[in-house]
Design a protein around this nucleic acid. Structure first.
Lengths: 192, 192
DNA sequence: TATATATTGGAACGAATGGTCAACAATAAT
DNA sequence: ATTATTGTTGACCATTCGTTCCAATATATA
Protein backbone atom coordinates (compact mmCIF):
# COMPACT_ATOMS: atom_id res chain seq x y z
CA UNK A 1 0.00 0.00 0.00
CA UNK A 2 1.02 3.59 -0.27
CA UNK A 3 2.06 5.61 -3.25
CA UNK A 4 4.03 3.86 -5.99
CA UNK A 5 7.53 4.99 -6.99
CA UNK A 6 7.72 7.12 -10.10
CA UNK A 7 11.37 6.43 -10.79
CA UNK A 8 13.24 3.40 -12.06
CA UNK A 9 16.04 2.49 -9.67
CA UNK A 10 18.22 1.15 -12.46
CA UNK A 11 17.83 4.28 -14.54
CA UNK A 12 18.62 6.49 -11.57
CA UNK A 13 21.76 4.49 -10.83
CA UNK A 14 22.79 4.70 -14.46
CA UNK A 15 22.57 8.47 -14.40
CA UNK A 16 24.43 8.66 -11.09
CA UNK A 17 27.17 6.42 -12.45
CA UNK A 18 27.71 8.63 -15.48
CA UNK A 19 28.19 11.72 -13.31
CA UNK A 20 30.42 10.02 -10.71
CA UNK A 21 32.36 8.40 -13.52
CA UNK A 22 33.17 11.70 -15.15
CA UNK A 23 33.75 13.93 -12.13
CA UNK A 24 34.57 11.61 -9.26
CA UNK A 25 32.96 11.40 -5.84
CA UNK A 26 34.04 14.63 -4.21
CA UNK A 27 33.47 16.92 -7.18
CA UNK A 28 29.97 15.61 -7.76
CA UNK A 29 27.39 17.53 -5.74
CA UNK A 30 24.07 16.18 -4.55
CA UNK A 31 22.30 18.99 -6.37
CA UNK A 32 23.87 17.79 -9.61
CA UNK A 33 22.80 14.24 -8.88
CA UNK A 34 19.30 15.44 -8.09
CA UNK A 35 19.21 17.31 -11.38
CA UNK A 36 20.56 14.53 -13.60
CA UNK A 37 18.71 11.66 -11.99
CA UNK A 38 15.45 13.57 -12.17
CA UNK A 39 14.20 12.57 -8.73
CA UNK A 40 14.26 14.89 -5.76
CA UNK A 41 16.38 14.88 -2.65
CA UNK A 42 13.88 13.19 -0.35
CA UNK A 43 13.47 10.18 -2.62
CA UNK A 44 17.19 10.03 -3.35
CA UNK A 45 18.07 9.97 0.34
CA UNK A 46 15.29 7.51 1.14
CA UNK A 47 16.55 5.10 -1.51
CA UNK A 48 20.32 5.37 -0.94
CA UNK A 49 20.67 6.77 2.61
CA UNK A 50 23.20 9.48 1.66
CA UNK A 51 25.84 10.48 -0.89
CA UNK A 52 28.22 7.73 0.19
CA UNK A 53 25.48 5.14 0.01
CA UNK A 54 24.59 6.27 -3.49
CA UNK A 55 28.23 6.07 -4.54
CA UNK A 56 28.68 2.57 -3.15
CA UNK A 57 25.51 1.37 -4.81
CA UNK A 58 26.65 3.01 -8.03
CA UNK A 59 29.94 1.11 -7.75
CA UNK A 60 28.04 -2.16 -7.38
CA UNK A 61 25.88 -1.41 -10.37
CA UNK A 62 28.92 -0.32 -12.37
CA UNK A 63 30.70 -3.56 -11.64
CA UNK A 64 27.70 -5.56 -12.69
CA UNK A 65 26.84 -3.63 -15.85
CA UNK A 66 30.22 -2.49 -17.14
CA UNK A 67 32.90 -4.71 -15.65
CA UNK A 68 31.36 -8.15 -15.50
CA UNK A 69 30.73 -8.35 -19.29
CA UNK A 70 34.28 -7.16 -19.67
CA UNK A 71 35.81 -10.06 -17.72
CA UNK A 72 33.31 -12.65 -18.92
CA UNK A 73 35.57 -13.94 -21.73
CA UNK A 74 38.12 -14.91 -19.10
CA UNK A 75 35.52 -16.98 -17.27
CA UNK A 76 33.87 -18.56 -20.29
CA UNK A 77 37.17 -19.36 -21.99
CA UNK A 78 39.94 -19.59 -19.40
CA UNK A 79 42.72 -19.86 -21.99
CA UNK A 80 44.70 -17.78 -24.48
CA UNK A 81 41.61 -17.04 -26.55
CA UNK A 82 39.83 -15.64 -23.52
CA UNK A 83 42.84 -13.53 -22.61
CA UNK A 84 43.01 -12.13 -26.13
CA UNK A 85 39.33 -11.21 -26.14
CA UNK A 86 39.77 -9.63 -22.72
CA UNK A 87 42.71 -7.52 -23.90
CA UNK A 88 40.80 -6.46 -27.01
CA UNK A 89 38.04 -5.22 -24.75
CA UNK A 90 40.57 -3.28 -22.74
CA UNK A 91 41.81 -1.52 -25.88
CA UNK A 92 38.29 -0.75 -26.99
CA UNK A 93 37.50 0.83 -23.65
CA UNK A 94 40.72 2.75 -23.29
CA UNK A 95 40.47 4.28 -26.76
CA UNK A 96 36.80 5.16 -26.59
CA UNK A 97 36.16 8.71 -27.75
CA UNK A 98 34.52 9.99 -24.61
CA UNK A 99 36.47 7.69 -22.36
CA UNK A 100 36.50 8.75 -18.78
CA UNK A 101 38.66 5.98 -17.40
CA UNK A 102 37.23 3.36 -15.09
CA UNK A 103 35.02 4.23 -12.14
CA UNK A 104 36.80 1.66 -9.97
CA UNK A 105 40.27 2.91 -10.81
CA UNK A 106 39.21 6.52 -10.41
CA UNK A 107 37.96 5.56 -6.98
CA UNK A 108 41.39 4.21 -6.18
CA UNK A 109 42.90 7.57 -7.03
CA UNK A 110 40.37 9.19 -4.72
CA UNK A 111 41.04 6.61 -2.03
CA UNK A 112 41.58 9.01 0.86
CA UNK A 113 38.36 10.91 0.26
CA UNK A 114 35.91 8.13 -0.46
CA UNK A 115 34.10 5.96 2.10
CA UNK A 116 35.77 2.80 3.34
CA UNK A 117 32.93 0.82 1.83
CA UNK A 118 33.83 2.17 -1.59
CA UNK A 119 37.51 1.29 -1.19
CA UNK A 120 36.55 -2.19 -0.01
CA UNK A 121 34.51 -2.72 -3.16
CA UNK A 122 37.43 -1.75 -5.39
CA UNK A 123 39.87 -4.00 -3.56
CA UNK A 124 37.44 -6.89 -3.65
CA UNK A 125 36.96 -6.56 -7.38
CA UNK A 126 40.71 -6.33 -7.98
CA UNK A 127 41.29 -9.54 -6.05
CA UNK A 128 38.52 -11.28 -7.96
CA UNK A 129 39.85 -10.18 -11.34
CA UNK A 130 43.33 -11.35 -10.40
CA UNK A 131 42.08 -14.80 -9.49
CA UNK A 132 40.14 -15.10 -12.72
CA UNK A 133 43.11 -13.88 -14.75
CA UNK A 134 45.35 -16.38 -13.00
CA UNK A 135 42.98 -19.18 -13.96
CA UNK A 136 42.97 -18.13 -17.60
CA UNK A 137 46.76 -17.97 -17.61
CA UNK A 138 46.98 -21.51 -16.20
CA UNK A 139 44.64 -22.60 -18.96
CA UNK A 140 46.86 -20.99 -21.57
CA UNK A 141 49.83 -22.76 -20.06
CA UNK A 142 48.08 -26.12 -20.31
CA UNK A 143 47.50 -25.62 -24.01
CA UNK A 144 51.08 -24.47 -24.52
CA UNK A 145 50.30 -20.85 -25.38
CA UNK A 146 52.20 -19.50 -22.38
CA UNK A 147 55.51 -21.08 -21.27
CA UNK A 148 54.97 -23.37 -18.26
CA UNK A 149 57.90 -21.93 -16.28
CA UNK A 150 56.17 -18.54 -15.88
CA UNK A 151 54.47 -17.75 -12.61
CA UNK A 152 50.71 -17.34 -13.24
CA UNK A 153 50.25 -15.18 -10.16
CA UNK A 154 53.01 -12.80 -11.18
CA UNK A 155 51.67 -12.63 -14.73
CA UNK A 156 48.16 -11.90 -13.47
CA UNK A 157 49.45 -9.02 -11.37
CA UNK A 158 51.44 -7.78 -14.30
CA UNK A 159 48.44 -7.80 -16.60
CA UNK A 160 46.11 -6.10 -14.16
CA UNK A 161 48.73 -3.49 -13.44
CA UNK A 162 49.04 -2.79 -17.12
CA UNK A 163 45.32 -2.57 -17.72
CA UNK A 164 45.14 0.03 -14.98
CA UNK A 165 47.94 1.93 -16.63
CA UNK A 166 46.23 1.83 -20.01
CA UNK A 167 43.03 3.10 -18.53
CA UNK A 168 44.76 6.13 -17.03
CA UNK A 169 46.98 6.52 -20.07
CA UNK A 170 43.98 6.70 -22.37
CA UNK A 171 42.77 9.83 -20.59
CA UNK A 172 45.54 11.79 -22.25
CA UNK A 173 44.12 12.47 -25.68
CA UNK A 174 47.41 12.18 -27.56
CA UNK A 175 48.15 8.78 -26.09
CA UNK A 176 45.11 6.92 -27.34
CA UNK A 177 46.67 5.92 -30.69
CA UNK A 178 49.46 4.15 -28.83
CA UNK A 179 47.34 1.98 -26.60
CA UNK A 180 47.08 -0.69 -29.28
CA UNK A 181 50.84 -0.94 -29.73
CA UNK A 182 51.18 -1.27 -25.97
CA UNK A 183 49.02 -4.36 -26.03
CA UNK A 184 51.23 -5.88 -28.72
CA UNK A 185 54.24 -5.51 -26.45
CA UNK A 186 52.28 -7.05 -23.61
CA UNK A 187 51.36 -10.09 -25.61
CA UNK A 188 55.00 -10.66 -26.42
CA UNK A 189 55.79 -10.58 -22.72
CA UNK A 190 53.17 -13.26 -22.19
CA UNK A 191 54.05 -15.82 -24.83
CA UNK A 192 57.83 -15.56 -24.91
CA UNK B 1 60.59 48.72 -0.36
CA UNK B 2 57.58 47.60 1.62
CA UNK B 3 57.17 44.99 4.28
CA UNK B 4 59.10 41.70 3.94
CA UNK B 5 57.32 38.35 3.64
CA UNK B 6 57.22 36.25 6.78
CA UNK B 7 56.71 32.97 4.98
CA UNK B 8 58.98 30.85 2.80
CA UNK B 9 57.36 30.23 -0.57
CA UNK B 10 59.05 26.86 -0.96
CA UNK B 11 57.93 25.67 2.43
CA UNK B 12 54.36 26.78 1.75
CA UNK B 13 54.35 24.94 -1.57
CA UNK B 14 55.74 21.84 0.09
CA UNK B 15 52.90 21.81 2.59
CA UNK B 16 50.33 22.45 -0.14
CA UNK B 17 51.74 19.60 -2.21
CA UNK B 18 51.45 17.13 0.64
CA UNK B 19 47.76 17.93 1.13
CA UNK B 20 46.88 17.95 -2.57
CA UNK B 21 48.88 14.79 -3.02
CA UNK B 22 46.90 12.93 -0.42
CA UNK B 23 43.39 14.24 -1.00
CA UNK B 24 43.34 15.59 -4.54
CA UNK B 25 42.31 19.01 -5.78
CA UNK B 26 38.58 19.03 -5.18
CA UNK B 27 38.60 17.43 -1.75
CA UNK B 28 41.22 19.84 -0.43
CA UNK B 29 39.64 22.97 1.00
CA UNK B 30 41.26 26.37 1.19
CA UNK B 31 40.72 26.40 4.94
CA UNK B 32 42.77 23.21 5.20
CA UNK B 33 45.50 24.73 3.05
CA UNK B 34 45.45 27.85 5.21
CA UNK B 35 45.80 25.70 8.31
CA UNK B 36 48.62 23.48 7.07
CA UNK B 37 50.63 26.13 5.29
CA UNK B 38 50.41 28.43 8.28
CA UNK B 39 49.79 31.62 6.37
CA UNK B 40 46.38 33.22 6.15
CA UNK B 41 43.97 33.52 3.29
CA UNK B 42 44.87 36.99 2.06
CA UNK B 43 48.56 36.17 1.73
CA UNK B 44 47.77 32.83 0.13
CA UNK B 45 45.54 34.45 -2.45
CA UNK B 46 47.99 37.26 -3.04
CA UNK B 47 50.79 34.80 -3.75
CA UNK B 48 48.92 32.24 -5.85
CA UNK B 49 45.86 34.13 -7.15
CA UNK B 50 43.36 31.40 -6.20
CA UNK B 51 43.01 27.69 -5.48
CA UNK B 52 43.66 26.71 -9.08
CA UNK B 53 46.76 28.88 -9.21
CA UNK B 54 48.08 27.28 -6.05
CA UNK B 55 47.44 23.83 -7.48
CA UNK B 56 49.22 24.59 -10.72
CA UNK B 57 52.19 26.07 -8.91
CA UNK B 58 52.22 23.04 -6.62
CA UNK B 59 52.29 20.81 -9.70
CA UNK B 60 55.31 22.69 -11.04
CA UNK B 61 57.11 22.41 -7.73
CA UNK B 62 56.20 18.73 -7.47
CA UNK B 63 57.63 18.03 -10.89
CA UNK B 64 60.85 19.79 -10.03
CA UNK B 65 61.33 18.34 -6.56
CA UNK B 66 59.89 14.84 -6.84
CA UNK B 67 59.80 13.86 -10.50
CA UNK B 68 62.95 15.34 -12.00
CA UNK B 69 65.31 13.44 -9.64
CA UNK B 70 63.27 10.38 -10.51
CA UNK B 71 63.91 10.62 -14.26
CA UNK B 72 67.45 11.96 -13.97
CA UNK B 73 69.06 8.49 -14.37
CA UNK B 74 67.49 8.28 -17.82
CA UNK B 75 69.08 11.58 -18.81
CA UNK B 76 72.49 11.00 -17.25
CA UNK B 77 72.77 7.45 -18.53
CA UNK B 78 70.54 6.97 -21.58
CA UNK B 79 71.05 3.22 -21.74
CA UNK B 80 70.03 -0.03 -20.03
CA UNK B 81 71.68 0.97 -16.79
CA UNK B 82 69.72 4.20 -16.68
CA UNK B 83 66.50 2.33 -17.41
CA UNK B 84 67.19 -0.13 -14.62
CA UNK B 85 67.87 2.63 -12.10
CA UNK B 86 64.71 4.38 -13.25
CA UNK B 87 62.61 1.24 -12.77
CA UNK B 88 64.14 0.64 -9.34
CA UNK B 89 63.03 4.13 -8.38
CA UNK B 90 59.54 3.34 -9.59
CA UNK B 91 59.38 0.28 -7.35
CA UNK B 92 60.67 2.21 -4.39
CA UNK B 93 58.00 4.85 -4.85
CA UNK B 94 55.14 2.47 -5.52
CA UNK B 95 55.88 0.34 -2.44
CA UNK B 96 56.48 3.22 -0.05
CA UNK B 97 54.58 2.74 3.22
CA UNK B 98 52.59 5.94 3.11
CA UNK B 99 52.43 6.02 -0.63
CA UNK B 100 49.77 8.25 -2.00
CA UNK B 101 50.38 7.64 -5.67
CA UNK B 102 51.72 10.36 -7.92
CA UNK B 103 50.33 13.88 -7.87
CA UNK B 104 50.50 14.05 -11.68
CA UNK B 105 48.69 10.77 -12.21
CA UNK B 106 46.11 11.62 -9.57
CA UNK B 107 45.52 14.83 -11.48
CA UNK B 108 44.85 12.77 -14.58
CA UNK B 109 42.16 10.87 -12.73
CA UNK B 110 40.66 14.20 -11.68
CA UNK B 111 40.97 15.54 -15.21
CA UNK B 112 37.42 16.83 -15.60
CA UNK B 113 37.47 18.79 -12.37
CA UNK B 114 40.89 20.38 -12.44
CA UNK B 115 41.88 23.55 -14.34
CA UNK B 116 43.01 23.24 -17.95
CA UNK B 117 46.39 24.61 -16.87
CA UNK B 118 46.82 21.65 -14.55
CA UNK B 119 45.92 19.12 -17.25
CA UNK B 120 48.32 20.83 -19.65
CA UNK B 121 51.13 20.43 -17.15
CA UNK B 122 50.47 16.72 -16.79
CA UNK B 123 50.33 16.15 -20.52
CA UNK B 124 53.50 18.13 -21.06
CA UNK B 125 55.39 16.10 -18.49
CA UNK B 126 54.11 12.83 -19.95
CA UNK B 127 55.35 13.82 -23.40
CA UNK B 128 58.71 14.83 -21.99
CA UNK B 129 59.15 11.60 -20.07
CA UNK B 130 58.24 9.60 -23.16
CA UNK B 131 60.89 11.35 -25.23
CA UNK B 132 63.53 10.79 -22.59
CA UNK B 133 62.55 7.15 -22.21
CA UNK B 134 62.71 6.71 -25.96
CA UNK B 135 66.24 8.09 -25.99
CA UNK B 136 67.36 5.72 -23.26
CA UNK B 137 65.82 2.80 -25.12
CA UNK B 138 67.69 3.74 -28.30
CA UNK B 139 70.87 3.85 -26.23
CA UNK B 140 70.16 0.39 -24.88
CA UNK B 141 69.61 -0.84 -28.42
CA UNK B 142 72.98 0.54 -29.51
CA UNK B 143 74.73 -1.39 -26.77
CA UNK B 144 72.77 -4.52 -27.64
CA UNK B 145 70.75 -4.71 -24.43
CA UNK B 146 67.45 -4.32 -26.24
CA UNK B 147 66.83 -6.06 -29.59
CA UNK B 148 67.19 -3.59 -32.49
CA UNK B 149 63.98 -4.67 -34.21
CA UNK B 150 61.83 -3.30 -31.37
CA UNK B 151 60.14 0.05 -31.84
CA UNK B 152 61.57 2.50 -29.27
CA UNK B 153 58.48 4.70 -29.37
CA UNK B 154 56.16 1.78 -28.71
CA UNK B 155 58.41 0.53 -25.91
CA UNK B 156 58.49 3.96 -24.31
CA UNK B 157 54.71 4.13 -24.32
CA UNK B 158 54.55 0.66 -22.92
CA UNK B 159 56.89 1.49 -20.06
CA UNK B 160 55.16 4.73 -19.14
CA UNK B 161 51.83 3.01 -19.24
CA UNK B 162 53.11 0.38 -16.88
CA UNK B 163 54.63 2.84 -14.45
CA UNK B 164 51.27 4.57 -14.25
CA UNK B 165 49.63 1.24 -13.58
CA UNK B 166 52.12 0.41 -10.84
CA UNK B 167 51.54 3.73 -9.17
CA UNK B 168 47.80 3.14 -8.99
CA UNK B 169 48.27 -0.53 -8.21
CA UNK B 170 50.45 0.28 -5.20
CA UNK B 171 47.58 2.15 -3.57
CA UNK B 172 45.89 -1.16 -2.81
CA UNK B 173 47.70 -2.32 0.30
CA UNK B 174 47.67 -6.00 -0.58
CA UNK B 175 49.25 -5.40 -3.96
CA UNK B 176 52.46 -3.76 -2.85
CA UNK B 177 54.40 -7.02 -2.41
CA UNK B 178 53.73 -7.85 -6.05
CA UNK B 179 55.03 -4.66 -7.60
CA UNK B 180 58.57 -5.99 -7.66
CA UNK B 181 57.59 -9.15 -9.52
CA UNK B 182 55.75 -7.00 -12.02
CA UNK B 183 58.98 -5.18 -12.83
CA UNK B 184 60.70 -8.51 -13.44
CA UNK B 185 58.12 -9.39 -16.05
CA UNK B 186 58.53 -5.97 -17.61
CA UNK B 187 62.26 -6.36 -17.97
CA UNK B 188 61.76 -9.62 -19.79
CA UNK B 189 59.46 -7.86 -22.22
CA UNK B 190 62.21 -5.36 -22.87
CA UNK B 191 65.23 -7.55 -23.47
CA UNK B 192 63.66 -10.51 -25.26
C1' DT C 1 -15.32 5.54 0.30
C1' DA C 2 -12.38 6.04 4.08
C1' DT C 3 -7.99 4.98 5.97
C1' DA C 4 -3.32 3.85 6.33
C1' DT C 5 0.96 4.14 4.06
C1' DA C 6 4.30 5.52 0.86
C1' DT C 7 6.36 8.95 -2.37
C1' DT C 8 6.95 13.61 -3.86
C1' DG C 9 8.19 18.57 -4.21
C1' DG C 10 10.65 22.00 -2.35
C1' DA C 11 11.62 25.07 1.40
C1' DA C 12 14.88 25.31 4.94
C1' DC C 13 18.91 23.89 7.84
C1' DG C 14 23.61 24.81 9.75
C1' DA C 15 28.06 24.27 8.23
C1' DA C 16 31.53 24.89 5.04
C1' DT C 17 32.98 26.59 0.64
C1' DG C 18 36.21 29.85 -2.22
C1' DG C 19 37.20 34.48 -2.07
C1' DT C 20 37.37 39.74 -0.68
C1' DC C 21 38.11 43.77 2.06
C1' DA C 22 39.61 47.61 4.86
C1' DA C 23 42.36 48.52 8.68
C1' DC C 24 46.82 47.85 10.59
C1' DA C 25 51.97 46.72 10.67
C1' DA C 26 56.46 46.65 8.89
C1' DT C 27 59.91 47.89 5.82
C1' DA C 28 62.93 50.53 2.20
C1' DA C 29 63.84 54.69 -0.12
C1' DT C 30 63.69 59.68 0.12
C1' DA D 1 61.46 61.36 10.01
C1' DT D 2 58.37 61.08 6.38
C1' DT D 3 56.40 58.66 2.79
C1' DA D 4 55.29 55.14 -0.35
C1' DT D 5 54.76 50.39 -0.67
C1' DT D 6 54.08 45.93 0.64
C1' DG D 7 52.48 42.09 3.95
C1' DT D 8 49.38 40.56 7.60
C1' DT D 9 45.18 40.17 10.11
C1' DG D 10 40.56 38.73 10.94
C1' DA D 11 36.11 39.77 10.00
C1' DC D 12 33.03 39.25 6.33
C1' DC D 13 30.70 38.05 1.76
C1' DA D 14 27.58 35.37 -1.17
C1' DT D 15 27.15 30.79 -2.52
C1' DT D 16 27.00 26.10 -2.22
C1' DC D 17 27.42 21.99 0.40
C1' DG D 18 24.98 17.57 2.22
C1' DT D 19 20.98 16.73 4.60
C1' DT D 20 16.38 17.08 6.93
C1' DC D 21 11.69 18.05 7.39
C1' DC D 22 6.87 18.62 6.31
C1' DA D 23 2.89 19.40 3.82
C1' DA D 24 0.86 17.75 -0.36
C1' DT D 25 -0.09 13.85 -3.26
C1' DA D 26 -1.01 9.28 -4.77
C1' DT D 27 -2.16 4.46 -4.05
C1' DA D 28 -3.32 -0.26 -2.02
C1' DT D 29 -6.17 -2.25 1.26
C1' DA D 30 -10.15 -2.48 4.52
Amino acid sequence: MGRTKEYDRRRVLGKAISVFWKKGFEATSMSELIRTTGLNSASLYKEFRNKEGLYETALDEYREQELEPFIRPLIDEPNMKGINTFLKGAIKNATNTDFTGCLMMNTLAEKEVVSTGAVKRVEKFCTRLETILEGAIRGAQKSGDIPPEKDPVALAHYLLCLIQGMVLYGRVEDHKPHVETVIDTVKQALVK
